[in-house]
Amino acid sequence: MAAGEPVQTAPRRTSEPMRLTKPDLNLMKTLHVMKLDFLPPAVLAAALTCATPAWAQQPAPSAPDNAPFDAEQLFASTCGWCHSDGGRAAGKGPQLMGTSKSDDFIRERIKNGKPGAMPAFDGALSDAQIDAIIKYIRSLKPQQG
């Protein structure tokens, strides 16, 4: 055994080039960012991927008729573990359906989180996405059945 010698067992993540898929490129066109070069790589990566719902609106070949609109999908991916039943019921986080909080309050809470209770999504979600989530919350109705 060669003690202390680094052993490569599999491709390292860092060696993976960041491949831009077609939707990514479309997204880049739509991003209202003056110069992507100015963004730190982490923010760039987050911006590129967290904005997936923007290109989810494109017709996907296998999308079912009841394909969810983007904010619903975004909510299920990142928010639903804590805000149960798509935000309709209390879970780790409060029930959001019918909330009396203002848009400004919700926007501020999504951006900055609440230490120990909710993560901050500033930098991960764009202002447009946060607005879409607020709209989604305002549209929530009890599930049928």
Partner: peptide
């Protein structure tokens, strides 16, 4: 209870979770 969501693939590191469903205890 569980409501499975068809989501768009997330293919590069992003900032948050990737759950793919709404649910309740």
């Amino acid at each position: 209870t569980l409501d499975v969501m068809k989501t768009t693939p997330i293919v590069a590191p992003q900032a948050q979770l990737n759950i793919g469903a709404n649910f309740k205890i």
